[in-house]
Nucleic acid binder design. Structure first.
Lengths: 216, 216
DNA sequence: CCTCAAGGTGAAAATATTTTCACCACCTAT
DNA sequence: ATAGGTGGTGAAAATATTTTCACCTTGAGG
């Protein structure tokens, strides 16, 4: 449920709340919001909050002091003390033994959970290193750390970016399934498209790319 | 100033508070703490909190509803879990007021400290969003989150990638200082190189790029 | 035995915060 | 013009929350 758009004033209130929560690790009171926006009556704030709530930007707990919470988008940027997900960084593995993927992670990398908000199952996420420059044209370089959500290739949308194990290498590619074959399209003129039958042992589609991390 | 050790009961209270804040993104009330620990009188809780405060595990704001905060030290007893650096994500700012950079971080993003190992001063690091596609040729796209170490441009090596505030935009570029002018070279044929005298107000070189994060 | 710190019970007092009520001013669209 | 949404002022009512006060229980130590 995408929150509907806000008025100027509502946005000011929302931004203040978010900033306040960043700074104080707790929601503001209506009076504090009022002070910040130059509203002398708590009722003025009350109505703004009701509007924000109706539009889906915040949630409120009735009668609770500081009973404001940001929904999804604004989801408190700074949870106190929460453990961050640690994703296994996998090493390249023979494509016919994908179960080895998680067996021996080289290490774990901590990831801000907001980078995983697109994932349908955060526990299915892992990190691998791009093994070639085949997606250079899409801004993905060899060596980039790829955030991957492991899922069956039948659940992957055509046209999306995926990570795939080809023989011994872990590669980023554009995924397409057509004519009963899996098409792996590079984005660089020096690389060529490759296609495989769905069960080809030399080709294991790990899953869609959620993001990437590069150290320069 | 390591917090002194807690009694059994005090620790139960502390752990509850921490868990509550994880779950609710705001501090609990004394009554809620009491319910959780089986204390019927808020005064019982009050005394526990006073003890926790005296021992340096929490801070309290007098009379404020939910006026409890965990102190730094208590948050991560160094070594237990992952104490990760949290970098401010800055919003674009007028280049003639670079001090505003950290003033209002949109939010904080947790970063695995291994991504900062190249930084000479991790505390000088921040994150900003690439404002154009001028470095497309180097695999950096508009919208990428740039890991930046803020440092004086005189300490930046020629040829390195930097983030720079140009007027109102935060841009990635290749940095070069020659002929008493700062050269900002794009890596895309649609963009042109720009040069400025070192103290030009419309141009503020934030510092070198350490890495980048992209969500797809 | 006596004392002190840590924890509690209960209730009342002192504040903080949220909701409501009544009414007003501006816009926008009918 | 006229109705409805958005934003406000002010004050009062309804709740929530924090502090205080008086007194009790237990266990460790002198």
């Amino acid at each position: 449920m995408a929150p509907s758009s806000l008025t100027q004033r509502q946005n000011e209130a929302y931004e203040f709340i978010r900033g306040y929560m960043d700074r104080h690790r707790k929601p503001p009171t209506m009076e504090e919001i009022g002070d910040a926006l130059g509203i002398s009556s708590t009722n003025g704030v009350y109505k703004l909050l009701r509007a924000l709530e109706k539009k889906g930007w915040i949630e409120r707990e009735k009668h609770a002091a500081r009973g404001i919470q940001l929904t999804e988008e604004g989801q408190d940027p700074l949870g106190v003390g929460g453990d961050l997900p640690r994703l296994p960084v996998v090493s390249r593995t023979a494509s016919d033994q994908p179960d080895r993927l998680r067996r021996r992670p080289k290490r774990l990398l901590s990831i801000d959970d907001r980078l995983l908000r697109e994932a349908s199952d955060p526990d299915a996420c892992l990190i691998g290193q791009a093994g070639d420059d085949g997606m250079n044209g899409a801004g993905i370089q060899r060596g980039d750390l790829l955030l991957i959500e492991e899922k069956d290739w039948t659940d992957v949308d055509n046209g999306s970016l995926v990570a795939v194990l080809l023989e011994e290498r872990l590669l980023p590619r554009e995924f397409d399934f057509a004519n009963n074959r899996i098409h792996l399209r590079p984005a660089d003129r020096h690389y060529t498209e490759e296609t495989f039958p769905p069960d080809h042992p030399g080709c294991y589609v790990i899953g869609p790319l959620l993001g990437l991390i590069r150290t320069l």
